[in-house]
Design a binder for these strands. Structure first.
Lengths: 227, 227
DNA sequence: CTGTTGCATTTTGTATACAATATGCCAAAG
DNA sequence: CTTTGGCATATTGTATACAAAATGCAACAG
């Protein structure tokens, strides 16, 4: 028996609702701090309150919602400290993914990553920030997959979703952008020679640099009185 | 306004049910792979199916249950690979906690940890394994708290619960036990001199050693045909 | 004018009824 | 003897009704 005993992946209502909500949160349709009225949302999504509440529980487990007893659910609003803490974790998760990936990467994987890297440099060259982010994400997802640790991948993905809900429209300045692209080049190089320790350290520094960018963005945008 | 605006921590039914279930799973009352009948469990816990199902969603988010569409929930059964993956993650989480703790530890914290270390050595001296485990856990929890990163602490706790559900009655052999106690001594020493990098590396090695013990235990106990 | 109390309304929490799906068994065909 | 089809039963999925709690407002006391 192989692994094909999975159902054709029908989505149950709570799962579908959670998926929709997740998108609404990450797109910013439901902004941080927004209170979620059960009746209203259930009508909007076309499901009854019961599966919607199960969806709430799922998203709360992912850290996208907080649920207060008798006071409903609201979209999580990350404080600067929360962001700092999340990135501290992200850094070691990425680092571990890199270390594991270096031990398992195939030549085919490397070829694919080289292609992505070239696309990234192209996007960088024409100053196409959205494309850059998309490719950047693809590279990190690829790395996570190569690492071959589903628990790590899941933890990483969940944490990432929480940060995406911030929707920091990073005004990445040119110097930092150049730097990031250069770091990516180094990362692929480390991977190519299967130097796990080097790749780990590069990734940790890479994430910490991004942390700086995000925290600076938050400083500029946020009112000082925020939690 | 201070932080005392939290409710007196009343537990809602789904939360209470989840708490009970969590205990049943970790105690081994609901063994890995057990199917959870909603009607039966709801009667046993004295709640209706609706809050019970929300509890299921919470525990599924923690990775203690898996839910199959139209086929109910069952207690997760970790494969050897799952355990390997979980420990890979645990190692870097502990490492990060140590690194952060070294940067923040106070003399009071150190005094408390020295006390715990002494208790641990005493338990080790009289070959009291349950006491050893309890103190061991207390030390690691303390470290996690000193690290001051709630997101890390939560991730760590969740992952740990999943592993606890294994209930490996570790037949820790004497040599490995001596080794573990010695490692703890080194860890406290590194913390005392605020050497974060050293503490991180010690913790990572410490967890990997434990991983070995657990995997060997699983090899001995499990039938080779298991998933 | 300020603060407090009580009521009406809204919203969340829980139980239950009904629908849809899965499961197990038995009979009949091959 | 094995396999397949169909039915009865059990179990999960969803909607809804009712209960409990929180919220907002207005009237009143100070």
């Amino acid at each position: 028996m192989d692994g094909s005993d999975l159902p054709i992946s029908r989505l149950t209502l709570p799962e579908a609702a959670a998926e929709r909500l997740r998108a609404l949160i990450i797109e910013g349709d439901l902004p941080p701090g927004a209170r979620l009225n059960e009746r209203e949302l259930s009508e909007r999504l076309g499901v009854s309150r019961t599966p919607l509440r199960e969806a709430f529980r799922m998203l709360a487990g992912d850290g996208l919602l907080v649920q207060l007893p008798n006071r409903g659910a609201q979209v999580v609003a990350l404080s600067r400290d929360d962001v700092r803490h999340a990135f501290e974790l992200m850094a070691v998760l990425e680092g571990l993914a890199g270390e594991l990936a270096a031990a398992r990467v195939t030549d085919d994987d490397l070829a694919e990553l080289h292609t992505l890297q070239a696309e990234m440099e192209a996007a960088h060259g024409r100053r196409d920030l959205p494309a850059y982010y998309a490719i950047n994400r693809a590279i990190h997802d690829r790395l996570s997959a190569i690492a071959g640790n589903p628990i790590l991948a899941h933890t990483y993905r969940t944490l990432n979703a929480r940060l995406h809900a911030l929707r920091f429209r990073s005004n990445l300045n040119v110097a930092k952008w150049n730097q990031a692209v250069a770091e990516h080049r180094d990362m692929i190089a480390a991977l190519a020679v299967r130097d796990g320790a080097a790749l780990r350290d590069l990734l940790i520094r890479h994430v910490r640099a991004k942390q700086q960018v995000v925290l600076e963005t938050m400083n500029n945008e946020e009112d000082p009185g925020a939690k």
